[in-house]
Design a binder for these strands. Structure first.
Lengths: 120, 120
DNA sequence: CTTTCATTCATCCAAAAGGTTGACTGACGG
DNA sequence: CCGTCAGTCAACCTTTTGGATGAATGAAAG
C-alpha cells in the first residue's frame, strides 16, 4: 500500500545528507561524473574504508548508485531522492499556510458577526 | 565577507532536520502556531528536558524562534532557513547539469573536428 | 602457483547524540 | 515567608556514528 515502492525514506535521505563529507562526495560526483571508490578516496583525507562506508550510507538513501564491473565499483550520483526533501519542505509550508488561512477566515467571520450583531 | 550575515549554517539545518522527533515538532508548530515548551512536551512521549534540548537544536539552526515572557517561552516555527536546503539541492543539480552540458559540447566539437580532419 | 588489485567485512575506538533524572531559578499567589 | 510552576542546567547512561586498521575476497596477470 506504499504510495511508490521506489520512494526512499526521508529519514535516511536527511541523515545521509546531514554529513558534510557525504555532501562533498555528492558534489564531487555531480561535477566529475561516475567515479570508482578509490578515485573518490583520492580526493579526501580519510581512509578508503571510511569512504566505502559513506558510500554505503548514500547508497541506502538512494542518493548514489553502484555499478559493479567486478572489482571496480562505479559510483554515480542520483539526485532524484532529494525531491523527497523538497516535498517535505513544501508540505510543511503548506501546513503552515493552511493555519494562517484558517486564522484569517476566523477573523473575517468575526468581523461579519460583529456587523450582524450591530444590525440585529 | 559572508554573503548574508543572517544565513544559517546548512550543516546545522540539515542535522537539526535529520531527526524525526524534531521534524514532528516543526510540523506541530506549523499546524498549531506558537506553543509553550510544556505544550509541545504534552504531545510527545519523551521528557520535558528532551523536548527542551530538541528545541535548542532547532533554535541554533534557526528553524524555531523563542519569545520569552518570563517563565513562559513561546516557540514559533521559522521556515526561512529551509530555503538554504533548497539552495543546496539546486546548486548540486546545477553542477550536475553543467557537467552534462560540457560533455555535450565536447561531443559536438569532436564531431566538428572529425569533419575538419576529413576536409584537410 | 603466486602476486596483485579494488573493494568490502569485521573489530575496535572516541566522540556525539538522544534520552533520563535531579537540582536550580525566580516572579507570583497564598 | 513559602511553596508553586515553566523551563533550563548539569550529570550520567546507552546507542549511533565517523573513523582507523587489518584480514578476506577472488579474478587476472605473471
Amino acid at each position: 500500500m506504499a504510495k511508490r515502492p521506489e520512494t526512499h525514506d526521508l529519514n535516511a535521505i536527511l541523515k545521509a545528507a546531514s554529513d558534510p563529507t557525504r555532501r562533498d562526495i555528492l558534489t564531487l560526483l555531480a561535477q566529475e561524473g561516475p567515479l570508482k571508490v578509490g578515485d573518490i578516496h583520492a580526493r579526501f583525507d580519510i581512509s578508503l574504508n571510511a569512504v566505502s562506508k559513506h558510500i554505503k550510507v548514500l547508497e541506502r538513501a538512494g542518493l548514489v548508485r553502484r555499478r559493479c564491473e567486478w572489482r571496480e565499483h562505479l559510483i554515480d550520483v542520483q539526485l532524484v531522492p532529494l525531491a523527497e526533501v523538497d516535498r517535505w519542505f513544501r508540505d510543511l509550508r503548506s501546513i503552515w499556510e493552511m493555519r494562517l488561512d484558517a486564522l484569517d477566515r476566523v477573523i473575517t467571520e468575526g468581523k461579519r458577526d460583529d456587523r450582524t450583531d450591530d444590525a440585529s
